[in-house]
């Protein structure tokens, strides 16, 4: 209830007041860019930045959905496996349709991807809400299920996309529109839509209310079950969009596709300023978080200071420092 009553009047006033807490992830991003330039001037080259932001698009798109799930007090560990599963279904469907539909198999496959994503999200949501299973356990279960299904579908190997579709589909990852890579445009559109829903609609307010205090939300007449379930469905749709952008990059799905992405997604959301215990969501912060994660990995390769054996440790330290900077800037 506190989140609900505060956020409504505050939204008008916020525009006039600079909030260090909200700016935190963007300050961290700026600091990282400056650090990167000092380490290696090539870091800020247009090609490098375009590469890094483009490949952060998957995690960013999925993390927009995760912002809904987490701010409503849930958690979804299954997203990485779900990407692989949806990518597998999509490729199999496209390959099946290629002889009869030709290039039109691609949009048809995309539609199948979205439907599959919605259904996977709905399944997660129902297990958590109607089944009343802890989100951690429920989605740990579906994580295993999706991973096993993609392994089964591929026989442990790979499902490559039909050669006739490969070139036609490639631009969805590698193409540009007005000089901007298409995955960046897609993730910007997803984020804009997500921000609108979370900040400007009744559903967005319900999401935060349910995450802040489930009981108070229920007494206020909000359906906790439907609010949380819808958050998981949104998550499923976001995973499907990420899968649609993922398939054209390497043109295949394998049992290792999307492995550990769930952890990157959760990290991006938290770096972005969303509280892991729920009640507060920051869509643009999430996007900044996803870019920060990818920039750190990029910086590790472009610098010569860090031994290949210690890369993961330095990444961990940078993430913790970024979080501490945010904490103390409040």
């Amino acid at each position: 209830m506190t989140a609900l009553s505060q956020s409504v009047p505050a939204s008008g006033a916020r525009q006039y007041r600079f909030s260090w807490a909200d700016a935190g992830p963007f300050l961290a991003l700026a600091a990282l860019l400056a650090l990167g330039f000092l380490v290696n001037p090539d870091f800020l080259s247009e090609t490098n930045l375009a590469n890094v932001i483009t490949r952060s698009a998957y995690v960013a798109i999925i993390a927009v959905g995760a912002t809904f799930v987490i701010s409503s007090g849930g958690l979804d560990l299954s997203v990485g496996s779900m990407v692989a599963f949806i990518a597998g279904i999509t490729i199999m469907f496209m390959n099946m349709m290629a002889p009869s539909l030709g290039v039109w198999a691609i949009p048809a496959g995309m539609a199948i991807a979205v439907v599959t994503g919605l259904l996977c999200g709905l399944a997660n949501g129902l297990v958590v809400t109607v089944g009343r299973i802890e989100p951690f356990i429920a989605t740990l279960g579906t994580m295993g299920i999706f991973r096993a299904l993609i392994t089964y579908m591929t026989n442990g190997g790979t499902i490559p996309i039909d050669r006739s579709l490969r070139e036609a589909y490639r631009p969805v990852y590698f193409g540009t529109l007005a000089g901007i890579p298409i995955p960046i445009l897609i993730s910007a559109a997803v984020a804009a839509l997500g921000a609108f829903v979370l900040y400007k609609t009744k559903y967005g307010r319900k999401c935060a209310a349910v995450g802040a205090n489930e009981d108070v939300a229920r007494y206020s007449g909000i359906s906790v079950v439907s609010t949380r379930t819808i958050a998981y469905v949104i998550q499923g749709a976001c995973v499907a969009i990420a899968a649609i952008c993922y398939v054209p990059r390497l043109g295949a799905a394998t049992p290792t596709t999307g492995q550990l992405w769930e952890l990157q997604v959760i990290t991006a959301v938290v770096i972005g300023g969303t509280a892991l215990r729920g009640g507060k969501g920051r869509i643009w912060g999430t996007i900044a978080g996803a870019v920060i994660l990818e920039l750190i990995a990029n910086l590790m390769v472009l610098s010569d200071f860090v031994s290949e054996y210690l890369v993961a440790a330095v990444q961990g330290v940078i993430i913790i420092i970024a979080m501490l900077v945010q904490r103390f800037s409040k």
């Binding site: 290696n40 490098n48 290792t256 472009l302």
Partner: peptide, 17 residues
């Protein structure tokens, strides 16, 4: 990590560097 996606990113970084 014997992973195509990670190798794609790493190679992009090598090419930039």
């Amino acid at each position: 990590h014997w992973n195509s996606d990670e190798a794609f990113k790493l190679m992009q970084d090598y090419l930039a560097k």
